[in-house]
Design a protein around this nucleic acid. Structure first.
Lengths: 145, 145
DNA sequence: TGTTAACGGTTGTTTTTGTAACTAACAACA
DNA sequence: TGTTGTTAGTTACAAAAACAACCGTTAACA
């Protein structure tokens, strides 16, 4: 019972990461939900297309590590709401290219700006050094580095 | 389009945090799922009881910020599987105290050890400074600091 | 070519979560 | 006491995620 090294939940990185992720996602979630009726999967797809342009669902999967069924359903809903269009690849008819509509691009630009501002806001609660090292460490843990 | 300050998904803290949280949770999730058939909510409840002893569902909610319905269901399942027992508070019969059974304590000790080792493993992918600052920054972002 | 395996994407079904409404018990106070 | 409001916890229903089976197309290669 008595251990100098009191390892508890607050010290467990996966737990800490989850709490921080949830807490920090809340305010942004509010925006894409209320403003565009989007889910997390949907703004992610939107962002990928906004950032990198014309992609297939598979490309998005490779970049985001989202499961393909999530992507498929997010694409469906984004298409229904006229945020993107599908363009079948004639060379390989299994896949289709996805493009944002003007409406999709407008939503992307809006959310991108919100995200950018919000990111700065979050970073402001940290020192410059903390921010820099946090990003480095997170990239390592996410295996994105 | 051409902006010096290329703000993309990999720089958005909520996204980074989510990716790191998911990636780093995977291996541990495997353990509590395969070994005890538990869900995330369940090992959290188990850990709270293991760490702090006899608590009510409300106490757990206050400490973990989990919603009370999640806790209620986690407690139900943990009780069914004989990891904990309920002990109605005679002074206030709305609430009941939760206690780990010997089996619950054994599972807790096992998972605690696994978590501790795994945490060290994750930390090993970082420098000492990165680890220290990461924990500080995460506590701030999770509003636990 | 013909056959089999792999791939991109979708659909169906089951779990899990979120939200709101509910029950029983307690508290406050006229 | 009686009425009204709160609290701890559960339950019912809707939304979302996980998982597996599936369809049509392309690739591999005998």
């Amino acid at each position: 019972m008595s251990q100098k090294d009191a390892f508890d939940l607050q010290n467990f990185l996966p737990y800490l990461l989850n709490q921080a992720a949830e807490e920090s996602s809340l305010a942004f979630q509010q925006v894409y939900r209320d403003r565009y009726g989007m889910l997390r999967t949907e703004w992610r797809v939107l962002f990928h297309l906004g950032l990198y342009g014309r992609l297939t669902a598979k490309d998005i999967g490779a970049r985001s590590k989202m499961h393909k069924t999530k992507i498929s359903r997010a694409v469906q809903r984004l298409e229904e709401r006229r945020f993107l269009t599908r363009d079948p690849d004639e060379a390989d008819r299994r896949q289709e290219y996805l493009d944002l509509t003007p409406q999709g691009r407008a939503a992307y630009r809006d959310l991108h700006a919100v995200a950018h501002r919000y990111d700065a806001e979050l970073a402001d609660t940290l020192t410059a050094e903390e921010e820099r090292i946090l990003r480095t460490a997170l990239r390592k843990l996410a295996r994105m580095a």
